[in-house]
Structures are given as C-alpha cells and as structure tokens.
C-alpha cells in the first residue's frame, strides 16, 4: 500500500524569487508525475512511477534506488550516501543535483540539471529537516538576492514557524520576530513576501 505523502510537503511561492517544493518527511519518494500516482516529488519525466527514495538519517542523506539510478555517473544498486554536489540521474534523462548548502542545517536541496520540472511546477525541491533558511547569502537553502535579512522556516512539535529579525506579517497579523504559520500562510516583511500552499 502506498503511503500518501500529503501533509508532509508544501509549495513555497516566493515573490520575485521562485517556486519551491518543500518536503518535510524523512523519506521522500521520487517518481513520475502521472494522474493517480502519489509520490512526494512528482517529476514530469521518463522515469518509473516510484523510481527512488531519498532518506534522511541524522544529518546524512542516502538514496535507495528502486529503478535504474546513477550517482555521479555510477549506477547504484544499493543504498548510497549522497554528498554535496552529487548528480543523481534517474533513468536515462532526468538529472538532479543534490546540494546541502547550509552547514548548520540538515536540510538539503535538489536542483534540476536536465530540462525537467516537477508537477506542479517548482524551480527546485527542498528536503527540509528542522529548518529552511531563505535569504541573501549564497549558503542559504533558497537564495533571495534582494532581501535584507534571512527568514527561517522551522518546525517544532509538528508545527511550522517563521522567524526573522524584523517585524513580519503572517496572514494579516503582525508578529515581532517569530510567528506560527500554517501550510497555507501568507508571510510578508519589509522587503519580501511569500506564500505557502499545501497540496
């Protein structure tokens, strides 16, 4: 029986930056975007319905291939440890880059190298552990060049929170520095705005 992934992921729409698929689960299934196929990361590409699983173990990530999967050009048959900059190829054509940009956070990111997209469309996939850091610095999970400060989304006791140094507005309510958010919240600050969308 397939485990339904909904509830463990959301879309993050950041104005003037991009759209991101954020997966919070410790296990993320990559598979083909097809009607009725519920996988965490549905990719519009020539891959199997359930192609590979990326698992988080402590601060490390491993990939468990279900179908032909290559890491940095080598086919992997067993669970393989992923490290910063690894290129993951699913099937013949779909290529993703694994990145773990922030040293203090266990969260990672998958970028498309090949000309493929998720469905619904997202520019990249964030594998979120406890936190996801957005902001102007290059080592952030999502780089937002024109922003003044970092904005951190983090989960605590199954709830999501947003934290920043300045005053922010969450769903029309002003919060100083920290606020509880839902998977459908609208968050805006002095120089940014973003929305979460559960799906």
């Amino acid at each position: 029986m397939l485990e339904l992934p909904s509830g463990n992921r959301f879309l993050l729409w950041i104005d003037a930056v991009g759209g991101f698929l954020v997966c919070q689960g410790d296990e993320v299934v990559l598979g083909q975007a097809a009607p009725g196929n519920e996988v965490d990361v549905p990719i519009l590409g020539d891959i199997s319905r359930r192609h590979a699983i990326i698992k988080r173990r402590g601060g490390e990530y491993v990939i468990e291939p279900l179908q032909a999967t290559f890491v940095d050009g080598h086919e992997t048959c067993d669970t393989t440890l992923l490290s910063e900059g690894d290129e993951i190829r699913l099937g013949e054509r779909v290529i993703l880059k694994f990145r773990k940009p922030h040293a203090l956070s266990a969260s990672a990111r998958l970028d498309f190298v090949s000309r493929h997209r998720t469905q619904p469309s997202a520019d990249a996939i964030v594998l979120m552990a406890e936190s996801c850091v957005l902001g102007p610095r290059w080592k952030n999970h999502i780089v937002c060049q024109d922003w003044q400060d970092d904005v951190v989304l983090y989960s605590q006791d199954a709830d999501l929170y947003c934290r920043t140094v300045r005053e922010i507005e969450v769903d029309g309510k002003i919060c100083a520095g920290r606020g509880k958010i839902s998977r459908n919240s609208r968050i805006s600050g002095a120089d940014f705005s973003l929305s979460l969308e559960a799906f």
């Binding site: 879309l11 729409w13 950041i14 104005d15 003037a16 120089d191 705005s193 929305s195 969308e197």
Partner: peptide, 23 residues
C-alpha cells in the same frame, strides 16, 4: 519587492496567481 496580489488570488477568472515574478 512588493506585489498587489498574493499567491492564491484569482483576479482574473480562470487563473490562479502563484507568485509575483517582477515589475
């Protein structure tokens, strides 16, 4: 950058806005 419409708005029938791109 500030946008008039937020994600989820439907200012135009048949289209849902996801995010602002630029001005």
């Amino acid at each position: 950058m500030k946008f008039v419409h937020a994600s989820g708005d439907r200012p135009l029938d048949g289209y849902v806005i996801k995010r602002g791109v630029g001005a």
